[in-house]
Amino acid sequence: MNWILSFLIFSGNLASGADLKSVPEGTYRPLLAKGKTTPVAAFQIDETAVTNSDFQLFVKSHPEWRRGVVKALFADSKYLHHWRTGVEVGDKSLEKAPVVNVSWFAAKAYCESRQMRLPTVDEWEYLAQFGPESGKGDVKSIILEWYSAPTPEVLPNVRTTFSNRFGVWDVHGLIWEWNYDFNTAFVTGESRGDTALEKSMFCGSGAVGAADPSDYAAFMRFGFRSSLKGNFTVANLGFRCVKEIQK
């Protein structure tokens, strides 16, 4: 009952009307931990990725996160460069598209402004195993199709790919998403040498240490995350926020 209340309060707070969806506790098998499954506690998560118009509201009320104002330490020079000005998206067709070109610091600040946080890698990967609710198409082919097409000039809107069994939209097929701890399970970039680190969590090798070496979609996500730094912004990297469920 509590969470329903808080959910109402939060959706009321947001002009965009983004809903939170509940994800029950469960387990998933991390790519880099052979044979082990990791428990994930129940959480609530944004139904869709944060949109340009959502983020516009945020920068209006948080001037320190405006383009041109934000410190270089917290966002690189491409931060929000697809907006017309520092406070205006300036293009109707972008309003419902997921916000991209945002740094980890900015995403984190946005979530905190809503008393939320970025999802952890565990939470996100747990969610990532579920395909379309309707049973149309499997996760693997959706991911592959997305990977095999370059990023379009104008991103599609949120709610245009699929929703999973929890009613969460666009987990795959739209953008990459920031994770709270994106830099913990990292590969060094020299992916064949990572086994020498002798820690299963720090091993991105294609052969040793991975739970399933053919799960190349997961490899790509881990590879992508490890290429980032907190102030990086990328043209197809956005985010959504989660809320922990109070026990």
């Binding site: 970039g189 020299e190 992916s191 040498g193 992508f224 990086f232 990328v234 043209a235």
Partner: peptide, 14 residues
Amino acid sequence: PGGGAAASFTAPGH
């Protein structure tokens, strides 16, 4: 090491 692989690991747009 890596023939430059680790040193050249680059995110999109970087």
